[in-house]
Nucleic acid binder design. Sequence first.
DNA 1: TTCAAGCGGATTGTTGACAATAATGCTTCA
DNA 2: TGAAGCATTATTGTCAACAATCCGCTTGAA
Lengths: 239, 239
Amino acid sequence: MSDPLEKDPQSELSPDITGTDGRTLADRVFARLQDDIVRGELLPGTKLGETELATRYGVSRGPLREAIRRLESRKLLERVPHVGTRVASLTLPDLVEIYHVREALEGMAARLAAQHMTDEEISGLVALLSQHEQQQDLKEDTAYFQREGDLDFHYRIIQGSHNDTLIQMLIGGLYHLVRMYRYQFSTVANRPQRALQEHRRIIEALEARDGEMAELLMRRHISRARENIERSTPPGENP
Amino acid sequence: MSDPLEKDPQSELSPDITGTDGRTLADRVFARLQDDIVRGELLPGTKLGETELATRYGVSRGPLREAIRRLESRKLLERVPHVGTRVASLTLPDLVEIYHVREALEGMAARLAAQHMTDEEISGLVALLSQHEQQQDLKEDTAYFQREGDLDFHYRIIQGSHNDTLIQMLIGGLYHLVRMYRYQFSTVANRPQRALQEHRRIIEALEARDGEMAELLMRRHISRARENIERSTPPGENP
DNA sequence: TTCAAGCGGATTGTTGACAATAATGCTTCA
DNA sequence: TGAAGCATTATTGTCAACAATCCGCTTGAA
């Protein structure tokens, strides 16, 4: 728990983080801290002392503060001047807000993806889907892969929009919050069969280059997920 | 040009910036620097030396760097490690991307506003509209007020969504870029009559609490503005 | 004349120390 | 016994100096 940062362990997921260095110290501590928050290493509400973090990551307080400022603008940290920073704790209404934004943004992403995705990207998406369907057949402990796989599906469509502003907002901004929530509450879609079917129809719309249909389906897909969240038991009352 | 920051002159617009202090130095220099960029005081592409800025604003490099990092994540500054930071220069494709995002986000904002706006907020919006119509009648040099007034209209609807995530993304993130572009190219809507009419219909939908209609109209409104931009002469070729 | 390699200057990245602010615990008085 | 006020203390905010990196220029040779 007190290892210097050096990006030691496996970093297979989170493509944001290029395992090696090559960037500045502040950038590395930013990536590392973000990862620790998202993966639940640092629990929401945790008070983060600057000197403590600085020694923990083996850097000075300068770069650390820059990283904190950036995480703060990504809503992963909450800071009060002269008091301190703590890990953002998402409430259920916050998550509902995020899903409204996702609905709008990813709907647009699907529309643009239908226009701008290359044929190779689409066929890659088809392959990913059949892979997910096989995992679903196996009915193994697919919770983890299902979770990340779902994210991966959405990732690819977002990238397929070829709109950098959109990509930044979604992947650089919102998805870390969603992932943090999922890790925190082990929230896995409890409607995997239906979700897969929705994914399949979205891909069909993409293959048909039907932007309006793709947007409509994606919005429905996310809207249902949101309703699912709204109906679910609030955090802490999970079985 | 070399006055200490102290927030000296008129700051009637940009409600983001509370003229007085009360926040930390880094926060103040962040706000001031952002304002200078948006208002075109610092032109796009300008190289920003840290020591130079530090002396200019009368602070040390520490707080300044924190402000720079935050502006960078808002896409107002572009930074290259070990090289330097410069004011972001928007290209036309960038602006088109932003308008796609605005279409999605403000469409959702209008939908939510129809549900969540208070009656007082709506009547305030009606008053604002009639005020704009009068200014339009006067046909004075309404370029400036038209510009800011349009922004104000959209501001209010965004706030009316009562979705903080959405508000942050739009007002805290995207609108500064839009304003920067408008100041830079003096881009005022060259279809004011039509835009006003579209505003009026949006408000009607809001009054009817028709979320779907409000979203549809808002999306059309922004989509048309985007098409207008796409057809327009690229920067530098303006008369 | 042109290209490449090496050097110098300037700028950014990082650090540790100093100052200021807010939370905490204790003392004291009603 | 409780509450208000004050001093202490730990933490954050800020600063100035040090180290590392990059850019441009000179210099030399092909």
